[in-house]
Amino acid sequence: MAIEAWFMEESDEDKRLPHHRNPKEFVSLDHLADLGVLYWHLNPKDYEKDEELQKIRETRGYNYMDMLDLCPEKVDNYEEKLKNFYTEHIHENEEIRYCLDGCGYFDVRDKDDRWIRIWIKEGDLIILPAGIYHRFTLDTSNYVKLMRLFMGEPVWTAYNRPQEDHPARKEYVNSFTDKVGVALEAH
């Protein structure tokens, strides 16, 4: 089962709704890969012995792992945490999340500054590149269990938009310039 992604309709409605455009405009895995977003579908029931997960971790240098249960019953200040996750930001490093249970949305900006909503579900492993503008929220199920992977000690510092002068953002934008020879402008 492949991940689902689509261009979002801008809306002030509940952020946990799908926010499809009308008509719906789905985004392919190739389009996500062009943005630097990587995806695997793995077996979350066997994550402790999963050889493919071990290969990904070894190949990419993810030597630290922890778990996050995100739901109202397990997180203090749940609504405040979700609000923080949903604030548009970048990171200096990749953001690697493996959905073991439940589901949620990662929203990423494309080259034209449009939001793409990526619906992660059980078994989806997603890697967002350093410097990509993104945000996260749950869907209406209000539950997700995520494995977080890191290179070295965990660093999770969010730099809220605008961050056009941040080195990670500059490097991300330059990756498109190098591919097509045209600068990516911020909006």
Rank of each mutant, 00 (worst) to 15 (best):
H91V: 01
E4H: 13
T59C: 12
I132T: 08
Q54N: 15
R21K: 15
I90P: 01
T157F: 02
D50I: 03
R114C: 14
V182L: 14
L17K: 13
Y105A: 03
L42V: 05
D113G: 02
R135A: 04
N142C: 09
R21N: 13
E52P: 00
M1D: 10
K83R: 06
R57A: 12
V144C: 06
E10F: 15
E58Q: 15
E94K: 04
T87V: 06
I116Y: 01
V75N: 06
V180D: 14
P23Q: 09
R16Y: 01
I56L: 07
T59K: 14
G102D: 08
K24L: 03
F106I: 08
P167Y: 00
K24T: 11
N84W: 11
T140D: 10
V173W: 01
Y159K: 00
C103W: 06
I120Q: 02
L184S: 12
N174K: 11
P44Y: 12
V180L: 04
V144S: 05
E79Q: 10
R114P: 05
V182N: 13
D76T: 08
N160M: 09
P44Q: 14
K45N: 12
A2K: 09
A5W: 00
H134C: 06
D30Q: 02
P154W: 10
F26I: 12
I90F: 01
D101G: 02
A2Q: 14
D101W: 00
N43R: 03
E48C: 07
V144M: 10
N174V: 07
Y133A: 00
E51K: 04
G181K: 07
H41E: 08
R16L: 00
Q54C: 11
C71H: 13
E79M: 09
F136E: 03
K179F: 04
M1K: 12
R21P: 11
M147N: 07
G181Y: 14
E153Q: 15
L17P: 01
D107E: 08
K74N: 14
M151N: 12
E80N: 02
D178S: 08
M1T: 13
P23L: 05
F7M: 03
R21G: 06
S175E: 10
R109N: 01
F136M: 10
V182E: 13
C71F: 04
E92C: 03
H31P: 04
N84H: 15
T157H: 10
L100V: 06
E88W: 08
M8C: 13
P162Q: 07
P162W: 04
G131A: 05
N142F: 00
I116R: 00
Y64F: 13
K74E: 14
G152R: 12
L17D: 07
G102R: 09
R114D: 15
I96T: 09
A33N: 14
P162Y: 10
A168L: 13
Y133V: 10
H31W: 02
P162S: 13
E52I: 03
T177Y: 15
P23D: 07
P129T: 09
M67S: 11
H89K: 08
K15V: 10
W115T: 11
E95T: 03
P44K: 11
L138N: 02
E4C: 03
S11D: 03
